[in-house]
Design a protein around this nucleic acid. Sequence first.
DNA 1: ATGAGCATGTAACTGGTTACATGATTTA
DNA 2: TAAATCATGTAACCAGTTACATGCTCAT
Lengths: 185, 185
Amino acid sequence: MPPPGSKTAYAVLGMLASGPRSGYDIRKEVEQLLGHFWHESYGQIYPVLHRLQEEGLIRSRTLPQKGRPDRNEYSITADGLAELQEWLARPVDRTPPRNELLLKVFFGEHSDPATVRALIVHYREELQVALERLRNTIAEMDAAVGADPAHAYWRLTAELGIRSMQAVSEWCDDAIGTLKKMERE
Amino acid sequence: MPPPGSKTAYAVLGMLASGPRSGYDIRKEVEQLLGHFWHESYGQIYPVLHRLQEEGLIRSRTLPQKGRPDRNEYSITADGLAELQEWLARPVDRTPPRNELLLKVFFGEHSDPATVRALIVHYREELQVALERLRNTIAEMDAAVGADPAHAYWRLTAELGIRSMQAVSEWCDDAIGTLKKMERE
DNA sequence: ATGAGCATGTAACTGGTTACATGATTTA
DNA sequence: TAAATCATGTAACCAGTTACATGCTCAT
């Protein structure tokens, strides 16, 4: 029943559940669609593909190509789908939190309000970019697929992305205000 | 100039910046105060303490104790404080996101709405507990220290904790509603 | 002709967790 | 008397990143 642990294995399995893909495809798709809440690197994907194949959860066929390296296309097996579904039904294991921004804010007393404020200002800028990008993706997806039932799940993830980014963004505004007040004192 | 990378090193340095502590103390305090956004394990703290001492960023003295192991109390050096402050001024490096709940939600099409809903319900319960715990800590801290300027920074971190948990909690409510609707169709 | 994209992979490294070992003391 | 707390540490493991290597094709 293992592959235990490795989220990457399940991410890969999940991607293959909607159709055959190469390692390269998986990477690209994860970045595009899941980029706001997930990430995978090649160094993780390729070894996992090999392992999953050994375990019979996926299988591959090699498509020769002219001029570029052969394309290894993987598809999920019945066992793989079962494994995926079993994992999906298990409650998420909560991973220990690590928010570097908050760590720095907490240590703010050993620096000064202006420095901390600059940190938050910078963070907010990056946040705004990510928020804008996600909003655009949502608009594109909504236009492209409409009320597709498969799309509904992606839509849920996007919704949480928007909301939590908004919440953080508002906190940034307020924190910047508070720190400005502290600077004046 | 190194210790590069390791957030643990900076977390430890930051803790020692407000006074001498043992590895054990650090662990406990991180859990109590920073628990809602940070985590450290002994297996990480003790080696880091040794390394930081070799690098001259902290120094230790051993307090013999009757009946229990000697207490190694570390304090930050001038170099250590400088290193901490340098790090504090640098913008946070954004770590690749990994939200397992959203990963499962996204793969919901390979399971079914009811299963996904159960996942979110369970998640929301744990969230509520964490939210309650943080609210209590805030009440205690506010009562204990009042408008202490050092406390102000902690207060900022708590504020973000509350807000983002609330945002996620609201999303859970809505998502559960959406999934119920999907179940009926 | 330059660079981006296609496509695969590996090795070295880093960061972190878990489980173990030790053992007295205080509290319930 | 059982369990939690104090207090240290290590070894084995796991997950993940980064940098590297290869080499063709297509668009600018």
